[in-house]
């Protein structure tokens, strides 16, 4: 896959995407992978915290929240615009 994609942090709640690539430093990348953010995985943006950050995602069937700056390292391709 050679698509560049967009950062996960740019997505709105309700959007679904496929993970293309994980950036950031080695330790952080490793951590994300261990939490299930691996290439080809589907991720759904669930909701944004009341103060605008962090953001809750649904991945591999469980809920996880990441800060916006961290989610910016994860490049995705939007796969589905379903409304909620």
């Amino acid at each position: 896959m050679t698509q560049v994609g967009i950062p996960l942090s740019n997505l709105r709640p309700g959007q679904r995407a496929t993970i293309l690539r994980i950036g950031g430093n080695r330790a952080v990348r490793r951590r994300y992978m261990e939490m299930g953010f691996v290439r080809g995985e589907d991720v759904l943006v669930e909701r944004v915290a009341p103060l605008g950050d962090p953001i809750e995602y649904l991945i591999k069937g469980y809920h996880l929240s990441l800060r916006q700056a961290d989610a910016g390292h994860i490049m995705v391709q939007v796969s589905d615009e379903h409304s909620r």
Partner: peptide, 11 residues
């Protein structure tokens, strides 16, 4: 610590 990302599970 720059090497730790904020990762919070919402069980």
């Amino acid at each position: 610590d720059e090497n730790t990302a904020f990762v919070l599970e919402l069980p």
